[in-house]
Structures are given as structure tokens and as C-alpha cells.
Write a protein that binds this DNA or RNA. Structure first.
Length: 869
RNA sequence: GCCGAUGUGGCGGAAUGGCAGACGCAACGGACUUAAAAUCCGUUGACCCGAAAGGGUCGUGCGGGUUCGAGUCCCGCCAUCGGUACCA
């Protein structure tokens, strides 16, 4: 096997050597503004990876693609003269960590420490230039103290619609007191609690019996838990929610200017799901009450033939006629027992039941039946719809199944047995007749508003964020309960440390595991602690801020440092700045990235941070598939771990191959022979400068020399500098490496190898293959120039255009667009001169002997196309 | 269904509207070697003509279009992958 063979270059010796030296010299430590060694003249660059969950499985090569890319950029930017913040840490709370602990029987604390060690040692062997002095762990009390503190800020804030921003809760209390001076303390408190950004509500939630916890909508995939794939059912429970919906518009608008992939922006927009329409009020026949429905097609109001309430709608009991009571109760029972999976699976077949009640259509006073059906969701819009089966697929299906009337109110004429959902012209709609859909919408909304039976309305798919979990391994809430009311702890009470439980498994009931810590629950004054914990996402919502000042004890982030690393040279409040480059997988497109933006905006509103957005530029690395072209997974047995690659080919070869496989963003399969390819390339670089003597010892090559470069060599050197520099700016790592291969191919054949050219290559190579670059740089320095510092500390070279072109250029000659000939001519011939040369060429003369030239297109220094009849 | 991405040699992939296939892998040939490995030097899209030198035709998922010129731009399809789904 490879490992028994002699290595083509002695990376096992020099890779650990340089890693240790970088650590000892703190080469990659980025000082903060007040620290010694900080250079205020340099611009900042914050380049961040999505920090990992230290799972029990360790890293595989797929994780390392993004890390390698950011590391190359970090090293490149340092050489370009930036102060670079490039940190790494551990997102160690949450379900995966806890599931692992339960599986192995190891306490999560112990397992986490062990997993972190494993991850860190894996990363250390790859030569990443992280500033390890900034390492953070979300499970550190010194960290989650501030996660809890941010929660307190959410709890103690409300969303001011006028200002479109979060404000301290005291402002609301004061205003309320002024407006309603005689309101009881009790009432006022209720009102205030209803406006907090963190609030408690009893609502149907996603309960996963297997995991013993509730989950956010985002964590439920196809009716199963995203973690583990266990069934999820809906049940009402008292839970903590975060009012992310208040930020829906800002999350949409402030997304626009960001330098993110358009596809990710679209995912976020769809997730927020803003839709414009109207609310219309249908009086209930025989009752002094009404049903509000939301519709995006108010122009079809005249086509409404029935109304549907969600089974959970609060008005169901009131509208239900005595004769239907039993049937309705039975239907509701059946629906509530359904899991989400069943609900989606059965989506093809619509179900529902008539309540016996009737609603009055506000436009024509018509009495139409009220049904309940689970195709109407309580959590969207008003939880009730007007059904227009002539112009809505779902209503049409339902109407057909239950033989309800179908009425067409939009031209073009719709064939029977179908519905038309497009735009057209209103008909059978009284005063709307003849109006286009857009006009009719405007007209009917105005009319509804005049009549007081409706209004313009905007609805979002985005729901408030279910923020509590019934788990042990998460941040406890900084909340206590007294007389059935929640109360915030003070900042001085933080951190709230979880009790040291031996049995931390889910209780199997809705009661969280923290309930088992009897002594911990009850405080001396009789108050009891909140038993839920925060979800996995809490810690990762703000970790990029903690990296800025990880040891700060008096604040979640040091003010000056935040201003420097996040806002940089941008003036406060302009909304620019933030993390300059954020690289991670698409799987976080709507979870982490939406939550983190939300928290950041709250912190901005409360004046704690200087930018409205946390991540200025986002790049998604593509997935790396196994050699079998399948997703890497343990069960498929196609997982490639970095450890083995590092051992056999070295860290540099691993790094280089990660980048050489293809464009960063695309999905691509791993190939071991591809690794060998870049390994061979690195060995060629090594042998460019090194020879083996009789004893097999490596020594500087005897054909190295300080010689002038030939024109062709100069051209290769400078075009390599240019190509690598430009490709790094656009993150086109694969083509940058290809150019360095061209460089090496050129100089391998040289009789005397010019030291200056090799030194230039080593600088360019150093972000990619830092160990090899460092080793050769050092060896060449000793022999030729004396020590001039580390390779990774050299200034990035500049190319000179005058070396890029030669005196002569090759001109492609096309006839009627087809390649027919080539001529070599002096550079910068005029169009007229070039035309003469082309017309005089053999091929063109042969062709034009019996054909006439209609036109000649000349592209100077490049091409000429002769068009003939 | 809807949204997004992708489609180029045997393979991974290159190509500001201007020589399609850079660079690498694999394969084949040669040098070195007692031999092998490693290394170094070559060849390598398909097809056709030619003894050779050389020449020609086709070719970037499919069908159209714009252009002197299209992998690249426009229109219409197909396939694969990913996301999402009763959102009124």
C-alpha cells in the first residue's frame, strides 16, 4: 500500500513541524484594536465557516471543502495586507450531541469534550490558519451566559410597528400607562406580555414522541423529525415563541442588497412567503358574529359558493348546528389524531364536513354553507377561507367531491369539469364585470373598505419561531415562574447553569428532563424555574459576534472590537459590513441563516451591534459525493475521512485536492486517483527545488540558479501571478491550481531553474499548500537570500502586464466562421494591415479564387473572419 | 404541481459571443531499470481520405432562432439532481 512506500517528498516530517511553529509563534493570531500588535492602518477582513457540531463520527472530507476554501482566502488576504479574522468553534448543544450521548451512554458533557478534542485534532492536522485564541464552545457557561442574555433582551422587548423596530419593553409599559391610566396592573401586564418578542403561548406544536420534544416547523421534514426521522404529531402545548414574524418585511427587504447566491435569497423569500390580498368579513347567519377570510383573489368574491373553517378554528362550535354537532366533533377528533405525515399523505383525497351553519357573502348577501376541512390550515391567514371552486384547484376538488356549487366569475370561459386559476376579465360579478383581474382586485378592496366588510391585507407563510425544547442538553431559559406567571431573571443571575443530571434522557412525557432535578427547580423564595431549554439554533444565532471578543466578560461582545470587525470602515447604520465572507452548506438556507439574521436585527434595533445584517457575502460550497457518486454516508460505506488522506498523501495534497475537484459551489464526486494527481504535482514542486543524493537524502537541487528569466518564462511567471490572484478573488480555486501546474510543467524542463521564479511560485502556492511552500521557502532562503520571514507572511506579488504578451501574436483565420488557417504576425497590427495579411494567406487565396469576398471581420491581435459567397 | 441548479471526451472539469476540450485522472507508446515501482518525454473527442506529410466532416442534452461567428444570447422541449408542497 501507499503508506509502506517511500513518500515522494518528506511531508510527514515537515507538515507537523510547521503546524507547531505557527502555533508557537501565534502566526495567525489577529489582535483586536486595543491589543499589542494591532495595525490600524490595515483594512479588516472577516472570513467565517459555519462552525460544526462536534458529532461522534468525526469529520469527513466533505466538511473540509468549505474550511479549505476559507483558509486559502484567509491566508491570501493576510498576504494582501488585511487584518484577517478567521476563527473556529463548536456548536455543541442540541439534539445530535444529545442523541449521541444517549446512544453511547456517555454523559453529554463528557462526550462533547471528547468529540471536540477529536474534531480539533483532525482540523489541526490540515494546517488551517485559525486564530485558536478565539476558539469558542456554545456549551461553555461563559458563552451561553450571553445566549441567555440575548434571550432576556428578546423577552424585554416589543416590536414597534411605527418604527418598524424592536424597542425596550419599558417604553411600551410607559405608553400603556399613559393611555390607560386606570387599567389594572393585571390587565396591563397581560397586554405587555402579549407584545414581547419572546412570549408564551398555548398552540398546536410539532411533538415528536420518540425524541421527547417539540420541534420547529423548520425541523420537521415530511412529517418526520429532521434529526432521526421519527414521526411527528401535532398537539397543543404551552411553549415559548419568538416573534420573528414581526421582522418578516425587514427580513425580505434587507436581504436584497446582500451578496448572496440568488437561489438562497429565493429560498428565504419563499419561506417568508409574503402574499398580498384582502381580508373579507362574512357575517354568520343567525348569529351576531362573523368570519374573517384571507384571499389573494378578492376579485372572485362573487364566485364564492361556500366557506371553510380550519377544524381548529375557534368559531367552529358556534356555527355548528345541533344536528351536525356529533359529526363535526367526530371529524375534528379524527383530524387532531392525524400526524403531519398522514395529513400530507392523504392530501390527494380531500376530507371535510358541513357544519350546518351559513355565512353571508358581503357582496351579494347570499347565504352559503360553512364547512370545516383540514385542507384549510389554522396557522395560515385567518384560518378560514371563502371557497371559489371555479377558480381555485383545491376548492374545485372539494366542491366536486361534496357536490357543492361551482360558479365561474372570470373570463375566458372555463370548460365544465375544470377550474381556471389564471388572470382574466371579471364576469357575473355585478360592478366588477369587464374589469381585468388586477383592476377588479383594486376595485373590490376599495368597495370592501368603504362598506367596512374587509380591507387590504398581507399574509406571510413565516410563523413565529417555536423556541423551547424538552431536552437536557441545551441552554436553560433565564426565566422563573411565580404564581403561574413568568418572570425574567436579572443579568446578574446569569448564567443559569443546567443541573448536573445523571439521568438526562427524555421523560417520555411532555415534561422536560430538567423536572428530574428537584433541588434545582425550586428557588428559595418559592419561585420555580422554567424547565424547557433552548433549541439547537440558539447558540449559532450569534456566535460570529462572540468570535470578535471571546473572552469579554462584561458584555456579549466588546464594543470597539465589534465596531472594527463587523462594521469595519463603513459608517455605522449604513447597513453594510458584517462578516465579509461566510461559507457553508445550503442545508442552512432557511434555518440558521434566517434565525441569525433575525437575532442580529433585534440586537441592532436595541443598539448593541453596528450592522443590520450579519453576513455580507455568502457562498455555498457544493456537496462532495463518495467515489460511487452517492451522498457520503456510513451506511453506504463510501465515507472518506481526512485522517487517512493526511497520513498517505499529506495535508497539502488533501487541501489541494479539495479545491482541485471542481468549482466550489458544485456537487462533485471524490476520486482517490485525483488525490494522487495533486500529490504528484506537489512532488514535482518539491523536485523543482530538491534532489536526492546517493544516500537518498534530500538536498537543494544542483540546477538551481540565480539567472535571468527568458521571455517565455517571464510570461509564465506573470500570467500565473495574474491568474492565481484573479481566481482567488472569484473563488475559482480549481483553475488557479491548473495555472500553477502549467507553471511547474514549464520550469521542470528548464536546464537551470531560476530561484526567483520558484520563490514566486512558492508565495502563490502558500495559501493552498502552506506546509510545502513554507518548507521550500525556508530551504531556499537559507541558501540564497537569508531568512526573510515565513512564506505565509510575504506580501502577495503583483504581475506586470508588459511580461504577459510577446512581440508576435497568432491570428486565427476563419472563412465563413470556420477555422481555416493561422498566421503569426507582429503584435498590434491595425485592422487594415491585418486584413491585407489575411487576404494574402494561402487558404483565403485558394477560396477566393472562385468566390467573392463579401465582408471581413477583424478582431485585432486575435482573429479575422472572411465572409464569402 | 411549483421553485432552483445542472447537462461539454472514457472520467473530474476549462473556455470576457471569437482556435471547444486548459489542467488533472485513466489509457497507450517511449526513455531509465536485470526487472518492477517511481520518475522523465510523448500520444490521446469521434469519424473519413491518405503510404506519409497532411487534409476533410461531425461534435458542448434535443428542436428552432439571433449573429460574420453560439458551449456561451433568445424561444420551445427533454433528462438528472436538490428544495418545497393543500400557504387560500
Amino acid at each position: 500500500s501507499m503508506s509502506e512506500r517511500r513518500k515522494q517528498f518528506p511531508f510527514p516530517e515537515f507538515e507537523p513541524k510547521w503546524q507547531q511553529l505557527w502555533l508557537e509563534r501565534q502566526t495567525f493570531h489577529a489582535p483586536n484594536p486595543e491589543e499589542p500588535g494591532f495595525d490600524p492602518a490595515k483594512p479588516k477582513f472577516y472570513v467565517l465557516d459555519m462552525f460544526p457540531y462536534p458529532s461522534g463520527e468525526g469529520l469527513h472530507v466533505g466538511h473540509l471543502e468549505g474550511y479549505t476554501a476559507t483558509d486559502i482566502i484567509a491566508r491570501y488576504k493576510r498576504m494582501k495586507g488585511f487584518n484577517v479574522l478567521h476563527p473556529m468553534g463548536w456548536d455543541a448543544f442540541g439534539l445530535p450531541a444529545e442523541q449521541f450521548a444517549i446512544k453511547t451512554g456517555l454523559h453529554p458533557c463528557v462526550a462533547t469534550v471528547r468529540n471536540v478534542e477529536r474534531f480539533k485534532s483532525q482540523l489541526s492536522k490540515i494546517g488551517f490558519s485559525y486564530d485558536w485564541a478565539r476558539e469558542i464552545n456554545t456549551t461553555d457557561p461563559g458563552y451561553y451566559k450571553w445566549t441567555q442574555w440575548i434571550f432576556l433582551n428578546l423577552y424585554n422587548s416589543w416590536f414597534d410597528l411605527q418604527k418598524n423596530a424592536a424597542r425596550p419593553i419599558e417604553e411600551l409599559v410607559a405608553t400603556r400607562r399613559q393611555e390607560f391610566p386606570h387599567e389594572t396592573e393585571e390587565k396591563r401586564r397581560e397586554f405587555v406580555d402579549e407584545h414581547r418578542l419572546a412570549y408564551v403561548t398555548e398552540a398546536p406544536v410539532n411533538w415528536c414522541p420518540e425524541l421527547g420534544t417539540v420541534l420547529a416547523n423548520e425541523e420537521v421534514v415530511d412529517g418526520k423529525s429532521e434529526v432521526g426521522g421519527f414521526p411527528v404529531v401535532r398537539r397543543p402545548m404551552r411553549q415559548w415563541m419568538l416573534r420573528i414574524t414581526s421582522y418578516a418585511d425587514r427580513l425580505l427587504e434587507e436581504l436584497e442588497p446582500l451578496d448572496w447566491p440568488e437561489s438562497i435569497k429565493i429560498l428565504q423569500r419563499n419561506w417568508i412567503g409574503r402574499s398580498e390580498g384582502a381580508q373579507a368579513t362574512f357575517r354568520i347567519d343567525g348569529l351576531d358574529d362573523s368570519i374573517k377570510v384571507f384571499t389573494t383573489r378578492p376579485d372572485t368574491l362573487f364566485g364564492a359558493t361556500y366557506v371553510v373553517l380550519a377544524p381548529e378554528h375557534p368559531l367552529v362550535d358556534r356555527v355548528t348546528a345541533p344536528t351536525q354537532r356529533a359529526a363535526v366533533a367526530e371529524y375534528r377528533e379524527k383530524v387532531s389524531a392525524k400526524s403531519d405525515l398522514e395529513r400530507t399523505d392523504l392530501a390527494k383525497e380531500k376530507t371535510g364536513i358541513f357544519t350546518g351553519g351559513f355565512a353571508i357573502n358581503p357582496v351579494n348577501q347570499e347565504k352559503i354553507p360553512i364547512w370545516i376541512a383540514d385542507y384549510v390550515l389554522i396557522s395560515y391567514g385567518t384560518g378560514a377561507i371563502m371557497a371559489v371552486p371555479g377558480h381555485d384547484e383545491r376548492d374545485f376538488e372539494f366542491a366536486k367531491k361534496f357536490a357543492l356549487e361551482i360558479r365561474y366569475v372570470v373570463e375566458p370561459p372555463t370548460p365544465a369539469e375544470s377550474c381556471f386559476t389564471g388572470d382574466g376579465v371579471a364576469r357575473n360579478s355585478a360592478f366588477l364585470d369587464g374589469l381585468t383581474t388586477a383592476e377588479a382586485k383594486r376595485r373590490i378592496i376599495d368597495w370592501l373598505e368603504e362598506q367596512g366588510s374587509g380591507k387590504r391585507s398581507i399574509t406571510y407563510k413565516l410563523r413565529d419561531w417555536l423556541f423551547s425544547r424538552q431536552r437536557y442538553w441545551g441552554e436553560p431559559f433565564p426565566i422563573i415562574w411565580r404564581n403561574g406567571r413568568h418572570e425574567a431573571l436579572r443579568e446578574s443571575d446569569l448564567p443559569v447553569v443546567p443541573p448536573p443530571l445523571d439521568d438526562y434522557r427524555p421523560t417520555g412525557t411532555i415534561e422536560p428532563p430538567l423536572a428530574k432535578a428537584k433541588a434545582w427547580i425550586t428557588l428559595s423564595d418559592g419561585a420555580t424555574r422554567e424547565l424547557n431549554t433552548m433549541p439547537q439554533w440558539a447558540g449559532s444565532c450569534w456566535y460570529f459576534l462572540r468570535f470578535v471578543s471571546p473572552d469579554e466578560t462584561s458584555r456579549f461582545v466588546a464594543e470597539n472590537a465589534e465596531c472594527y470587525w463587523m462594521a469595519g470602515n463603513e459608517t455605522r447604520n449604513r447597513g453594510r459590513g458584517g462578516v465579509d465572507l461566510y461559507v457553508g452548506g445550503t442545508e442552512h438556507a432557511v434555518l440558521h441563516l434566517l434565525y441569525a439574521r433575525f437575532w442580529h436585527k433585534v440586537l441592532y434595533d436595541l443598539n448593541y451591534v453596528s450592522t443590520i445584517e450579519p453576513f455580507q457575502r455568502l457562498v455555498n460550497q457544493g456537496m462532495i459525493l463518495g467515489q460511487d457518486n452517492q451522498k457520503m454516508s456510513k451506511s453506504r460505506g463510501n465515507v472518506v475521512t481526512p485522517d487517512k488522506i493526511v497520513e498517505e498523501y499529506g495535508a497539502d495534497a488533501l487541501r489541494l485536492y479539495e479545491m482541485f475537484l471542481g468549482p466550489l459551489e458544485s456537487t462533485k464526486p471524490w476520486s482517490m486517483s485525483g488525490v494522487e494527481g495533486v500529490y504528484r504535482f506537489l512532488a514535482r514542486v518539491w523536485r523543482l527545488a530538491m534532489d536526492e543524493d546517493q544516500e537518498g537524502e534530500w538536498q537543494l537541487s544542483s540546477v538551481l540558479g540565480s539567472v535571468e528569466l527568458g521571455a517565455k518564462q517571464q510570461k509564465v511567471v506573470h500570467s500565473t501571478i495574474k491568474k492565481v490572484s484573479e481566481d482567488l478573488e472569484s473563488l475559482s480555486f480549481n483553475t488557479a491550481i491548473a495555472q500553477m501546474m502549467i507553471f511547474v510543467n514549464e520550469f521542470t524542463g528548464a536546464e537551470i531553474r531560476p530561484v526567483e521564479a520558484i520563490r514566486a511560485l512558492l508565495i502563490l502556492l502558500s495559501p493552498f499548500a502552506p506546509h510545502l511552500a513554507e518548507e521550500l521557502w525556508w530551504r531556499l532562503s537559507i541558501r540564497f537570500t537569508g531568512f526573510e520571514g515565513l512564506a505565509c507572511e510575504q506580501p502577495w506579488p503583483k504581475w506586470r502586464d508588459e511580461f504577459l504578451t510577446e512581440d508576435e501574436v497568432e491570428i486565427v483565420i476563419q472563412i465563413n466562421g470556420k477555422l481555416r488557417d493561422k498566421v503569426t504576425v507582429r503584435k498590434d497590427l491595425t485592422k487594415a494591415e491585418l486584413e491585407q495579411v489575411v487576404l494574402a494567406s494561402r487558404k483565403v487565396r485558394e477560396t477566393t479564387r472562385d468566390k467573392s469576398v463579401r465582408k471581413i471581420i477583424v478582431v485585432p491581435n486575435k482573429l479575422a473572419n472572411v465572409v464569402v459567397d
